[in-house]
């Protein structure tokens, strides 16, 4: 089958919890509560794949991305990168791992120093990690990287403000690639771009993956982009994984009511299809992660919740006929309760 499956995963996340204590506004006051941004999440990222991490704002997807980059302290659980546990690794090891995991941000303008030429910005990590020796070799590498992301080598002497949003995102990608990473965490990399430019960047990311054998964790709230780029997809809700599986399964036959409602809410640029669709409209809004509901996290908004759902938390489990893993007590009878998405 898939050759990717047989190799050990590049990243293993087990029972990950990341909680942020909320301080009282009073000096020396007691903490007012704990934001359970990520609360018991386990999944693997396989070598060479793109794992799409999708969910609405506040679901914890960015927090997980930042934890893999060692930018967030882990409250409980573990993140293993290429066999090494990041939370217990000694500083030199942790630093080496940091080079191998890079980040692409949503807003490339905010992530580039406006007073640093593009060439210097890209050269900085090369110098820092000692990846090339000597100025000539570094300059040559910068030019190579610019060409790799579809920019002219002469752009090295220009400054970020001289570029459009799409070009800046290419510069951000070049800078990430400068570290010669194995995993790139792409956090909403195309959300701020216009659709014609978004497609250029998505295609570039796909080309680079093929050329360099990269692994992506692709974080986005846009389900259509995630479907397009991912091999596997994880859907998050309020700090937990609601569903995870192969792209085809999650989109074609989602086994969690949240995934179904999300998919039904995405507008499709096809007027006839749009008119014929039945949306699963969710009640209310996302509950506060300070005080998440008992039992299943989705229970307050679920259109098919039972009494049991507010008592017992459903485990992430496979179906009787395979498919994705879903955390729902009613996933086996879902087809008789909620419509399937049109994507199938």
């Amino acid at each position: 089958m898939n050759p990717i499956v047989s190799r050990p995963p590049l990243v293993s996340i087990r029972d990950l919890k990341i909680h942020f204590p909320m301080r009282s506004r009073m000096l020396f006051g007691k903490p007012e509560g704990v934001v359970q941004a990520v609360d018991g999440v386990s999944f693997d990222i396989r070598r060479g794949e793109t794992l799409g991490l999708v969910g609405e704002s506040g679901c914890g997807k960015t927090t997980i991305g930042r934890a893999i980059l060692q930018l967030n302290r882990i409250t409980e659980g573990s993140i293993t990168f290429d066999g090494k546990d990041l939370s217990s690794a000694a500083e030199p090891d942790a630093r080496r791992a940091r080079r191998r995991v890079q980040l692409i941000f949503q807003d490339p303008y905010a992530s580039l120093n406006p007073r640093m030429s593009v060439g210097r910005a890209i050269a900085e990590p090369i110098r820092l990690h000692g990846l090339r020796q000597g100025e000539a070799a570094i300059r040559e590498r910068v030019h190579e990287l610019l060409v790799l992301v579809g920019l002219a080598p002469s752009y090295a002497s220009r400054y970020p403000h001289e570029f459009s949003g799409g070009q800046r995102q290419r510069i951000g990608i070049a800078r990430a690639l400068a570290c010669e990473p194995e995993l790139i965490v792409c956090d909403e990399p195309v959300s701020a771009l216009d659709v014609s430019i978004q497609a250029q960047v998505v295609n570039l990311l796909q080309d680079l993956q093929e050329k360099l054998g990269l692994t992506y964790l692709f974080i986005a709230h846009g389900l259509s982009v995630i479907q397009h780029i991912s091999d596997r997809v994880a859907v998050m809700y309020l700090g937990r994984i609601a569903e995870i599986g192969e792209r085809r399964d999650v989109y074609g036959n989602p086994r969690h009511p949240y995934t179904r409602s999300l998919l039904s809410a995405v507008p499709i640029p096809n007027p006839k299809l749009e008119r014929a669709r039945r949306r699963i409209v969710l009640n209310g809004e996302l509950p506060s992660p300070l005080n998440p509901p008992k039992g299943c996290r989705f229970v307050t908004r679920c259109p098919i919740a039972l009494e049991r759902c507010s008592r017992e938390e459903p485990p992430l489990a496979p179906g009787a006929h395979g498919g994705s893993l879903a955390a729902c007590w009613r996933s086996e009878e879902l087809d008789s309760l909620l419509p399937r998405p049109v994507a199938a």
Binding site: A199, S224, I268, L273, A343, A344
Partner: peptide, 17 residues
Amino acid sequence: RSTPRLDRPEERRLRPI
């Protein structure tokens, strides 16, 4: 053509402008 769409799951390549 450059819009990724849910109703075309097998389209693996976008065609940007």
